[in-house]
């Protein structure tokens, strides 16, 4: 009886695991099946390097460079916010806060990750954007900066959480050794803990970057979505993700435009996959070191 139950549970877990892998495989397959035919008509070079995106004109042009730049700009801006703050939060939680307060504080930071992205977008649209517009005297509040700030806050929990794991993985014996040599708390933190946790912190940065680059709803709502090369952080931009979300409904199924959007999706997929793999590898490197 017990053995039968055990086998059932085992089969069930195997089944679920295989099914989810299978599902993922299918999605990947579908994504590339829809995207690859696109490159029979448009060369990857003019796709990635083209600066004009007029998918519905005759003849259409499919250059995603402005959107690559838009995604890059917004992501870089987000990281400029999320990395210093995330690392600072990690060090604060792991090294400064008394042990009893660490978990509550960490939970509070992680709640940030639980806020739906549309709420961030709404906040950006009605509060942050208008405020920036007024403060900086901009023609519009929907800019790369607005998106960067929001994405920075959204990526912060990822960076902070992974970096904090790395900080608390540093063995206490190293802190003791440093203190026993007459180092202060701060010297110990900067000269021992940070170098020892460095790879884990990088992993957090890569994962946070993956989060920022893949985010759609928030940037769609607050970045202005103009598909031109962004002259500055203070102008509207359009990201790769927003492009797909905006145009998918208008693109006839099976048409060139439709396939172009899948190609954009494939590029995004490759980016985030790369970032996650690099992040995981770096994180594992930390674990394997000791």
């Amino acid at each position: 009886m017990a053995r039968a139950a055990e086998r059932l549970v085992k089969a069930l877990t195997w089944g679920c695991a295989t099914l989810s892998l299978f599902g993922l495989g299918l999605i990947t397959l579908f994504l590339f099946r829809e995207a690859i035919p696109f490159f029979r008509h448009i060369s990857p070079f003019s796709f990635l390097g083209g600066t004009a995106w007029y998918p519905t004109q005759e003849p259409p042009s499919f250059g995603i460079l402005p959107m690559l730049a838009g995604s890059g700009l917004v992501t870089a801006g987000a990281l400029a916010l999320a990395v210093p703050f995330g690392v600072a939060v990690a060090l604060f939680v792991g090294e400064v806060l008394p042990r009893g307060l660490r978990d509550p504080f960490k939970v509070a930071v992680e709640i940030l990750a639980g806020i739906p992205s549309v709420v961030y977008g709404f906040f950006g649209l009605v509060v942050l954007g208008p405020w920036l517009q007024g403060r900086l005297g901009l023609p519009t509040g929907q800019t790369a900066l607005t998106a960067s700030l929001l994405l920075g806050v959204m990526a912060l929990p990822t960076v902070a959480s992974v970096a904090e794991d790395a900080v608390s993985a540093v063995p206490d014996s190293l802190r003791e050794a440093s203190l026993a040599l007459g180092a202060t708390h701060w010297q110990t933190m900067w000269r021992v803990v940070v170098p020892a946790a460095r790879s884990g912190m990088f992993a957090g940065v890569f994962l946070g970057m993956g989060r920022a680059i893949g985010e759609t709803m928030t940037v769609l709502m607050v970045s202005g979505n103009s598909p031109v090369w962004p002259p500055s952080l203070l102008s509207p931009v359009r990201t790769l993700t927003a492009t797909i979300a905006l145009e998918m409904a208008e693109a006839p199924v099976g048409g060139l435009h439709y396939r172009a959007l899948f190609a954009v999706g494939a590029i995004l997929f490759l980016f985030t996959l790369l970032l996650n793999v690099v992040g995981d590898l770096v994180a594992q490197h930390v674990g394997g070191k000791r």
């Binding site: 014996s173 190293l174 050794a177 026993a180 040599l181 007459g182 170098p195 020892a196 070191k289 000791r290």
Partner: peptide
Amino acid sequence: LRRRIGMVFQKPNPFPKSVFDNVAYG
């Protein structure tokens, strides 16, 4: 005080640094 009183622990606990940087730490 700790500069004048060195300490060695149960398990070897070198820093994840070079031999030189370990000794030069203090």
